[in-house]
């Protein structure tokens, strides 16, 4: 299963900023259930908010991982803020802009801004929401817990995404 909620990286400034795009498509099966038609109204496909948070987590996670050359296992540890001004529909694009606020051996903090492009409404970039996250470098945990040696976070899927977006890894 591909659990990728970003389609392309368009900007990657090491240790500073990462920008990714997500094109929402009716081919995504979950949109047929979120929400189906009822007797009273037609179907209303809306991208679920947790998947928008996941999209930002993948964008910001790449930023945090790249800052340490993908040597750390970067795990989403805390959603400090998730605010959305509107809904996101198929045919629209979300633009995730993640900024690295702080990184140290134990983890990192990022702040994120999301914009939306609605092609049916002029195609202008509109503010959509904000998502601030905390990541843990899990091998550096305080309990001294051991995790598998291979980096199960940054799999080939992530590296392929970076390569296909034109970034050397």
């Amino acid at each position: 299963m591909r659990w990728m909620w970003i389609d392309r990286i368009v900007e990657l400034d090491k240790g500073a900023r990462c920008v990714a795009l997500k094109n929402i498509s009716m081919a995504e099966e979950h949109l047929h259930d979120h929400f189906p038609a009822t007797d009273d109204r037609p179907s209303k496909p809306i991208m679920p908010a947790p998947l928008i948070v996941e999209g930002m987590a993948q964008t910001a996670g790449i930023l945090v991982g790249h800052a340490r050359d993908f040597a750390e296992k970067v795990i989403l540890a805390k959603v400090g803020l998730a605010e959305f001004d509107r809904e996101a529909y198929p045919g629209q694009t979300l633009i995730y802009e993640a900024t690295l606020d702080r990184i140290d051996p134990a983890g990192a903090a990022t702040s994120g801004v999301i914009h939306q492009i609605d092609y049916a409404a002029g195609g202008e970039k509109q503010p959509f929401g904000r998502v601030d996250l905390m990541f843990s470098h899990i091998d550096q945990n305080m309990q001294g817990l051991a995790f598998p040696e291979h980096n199960f976070v940054f799999t080939d899927q992530f590296f392929d995404l970076l390569r296909n977006s034109g970034f050397a890894v």
Binding site: A77, K78, G80, D101, R102, D104, A106, G107, A109, M134, S136, N141, M142, Q143
Partner: peptide, 10 residues
């Protein structure tokens, strides 16, 4: 929780 101490220090 443990991640909160890192958040607080940042």
């Amino acid at each position: 929780e443990s991640i909160d101490y890192l958040d607080i220090s940042f």
